[in-house]
Each structure stands twice: as C-alpha cells, then as structure tokens.
Design a protein around this nucleic acid. Sequence first.
DNA 1: ATTATCTGCTACTGAGTGGTTGCAATTTAA
DNA 2: TTAAATTGCAACCACTCAGTAGCAGATAAT
Lengths: 105, 105
Amino acid sequence: MRRDVFHAISDPTRRAILTRLALQPMTPNTLAEHFDSSRQAVSKHIKILTECQLLTQQQTGREIYYHFNPRRMKEVVDWLESFQQLWEQRFSQLDQVLKKSKPKK
Amino acid sequence: MRRDVFHAISDPTRRAILTRLALQPMTPNTLAEHFDSSRQAVSKHIKILTECQLLTQQQTGREIYYHFNPRRMKEVVDWLESFQQLWEQRFSQLDQVLKKSKPKK
DNA sequence: ATTATCTGCTACTGAGTGGTTGCAATTTAA
DNA sequence: TTAAATTGCAACCACTCAGTAGCAGATAAT
C-alpha cells in the first residue's frame, strides 16, 4: 500500500486536518467536531497521516493528542524546490542557445 | 471527478513526467519511451495533467508536443508557504505564552 | 491511393480509496 | 462495581484509479 507524503496531502480533508493540527494538537474526537466527516472517517485520515509520519501521537490517559510533524513535509518542499530549480535552469540553457545564435544574424 | 493539482502530483509517474517535460517539451510517444509504462498509460497521465492545466499542448502536424505550465504549480507552493507560515506563527504564539508565564517563576 | 504513424477515446480489470457501521479494549466518572 | 467516554480495528459498500487492449480519426510516407 502506498503511504507517501504526496499521497497523504492529495486529499483536501487531510490538508485541512494538517492545518488544524499545525495550529494546535488535538484528540480525534475534538478534531472531528470541526469537520462534517464522522469520527471514524477522521480517524482513518489520521491513521494515514500518522503512517507517513506527518503526525505524531502523545497519549495521556484514554485521550491521544496528535501533533503535526514538519520534518516529513520537507520532502514536498524539497521536490518543489528542485523542480523550480530545474525549470529555471532550462531557461538559462535556452538563454545560452539564444546568445550563441545571436552573432549569426 | 477530482482534478486538482495536489491529486495530479500525488502519482510518482506523473511527477516523473512533469520533470521530463519541464526539461524539454515532448510528444506522448517519445515521452513513453523514457518510462516502463505503455503509451496508453502515459497518455492517460498526460490527460490528467492537462486537465488540471499543469501541461499545455502544441500541435504540429500529427504530433502533439506537451509543455509544462508552471503557473498551476504555484497553487502547491502557495499552500506550503501559508502552511509553513502558520506553523511558525504557532511557535511565536507559544513564545508569547512563555514570556507571559516567565515572570511568575 | 494505399500503407504506416501518431494520437485520443472507450471498455474492461484488479487494486485502492473514502466513508459508514458495529465491536472490543482501555480509561474515566458515577 | 457499573456506566459512560475515547479510541482503534475489521468488515462492508460505492466509487475512483492506474493500467491494458482495441478501435477510429487525422497526418505523413510510399
């Protein structure tokens, strides 16, 4: 089963959950109150987010607080940055081609 | 049918396609030669990427060159940046709490 | 004119997804 | 001790997804 960060943030509900938990750690129950989805649906999203280490657990009694873990989000940031770099590099190569062809005219 | 950028980049093959096309515009056939997937599979990914405007077409004769369109990728960058901002803001709020509680000790 | 090439579209298949329901385990409250 | 609360897990359902195979339209080559 695929459990990578890109897949995790592809769902809008999961992105909303991440936003909530980035502001404040919460238990599944209190988290579910902020969404239209049921507790079980939210819990399933939490499981996916935990499995790819975007969330960490902190149990106190029967309650479990879930915290956002920014370390894994870096994977996405890194990909985007390298992609942007690639894209800009392509244009600089294009510039070189244009400079080389300029003297010919 | 869900056709947003986050879903589009959730597939590793599609990310590889985007990387290829960011370097150099290509036709589906030549693009498929760089992957293990069949032409039809690649073509399906191209369709998805085109529908969410991550790719643009440029037809010349019977060949269609697909170009990467960086504008839509900004949606992901923006979300990540606002998320990062949120995350850092949370810590600054935490700092304020710590500052307020410090005098008490 | 006929054949080959390039491409998109549709139907199909197996796997995965999001959601719901019910249940069991653990912890807290009465 | 008994009842309520919090949570995770498994089974199920309708839907989507990635991939394959076959076909049709348009263009290029012979």
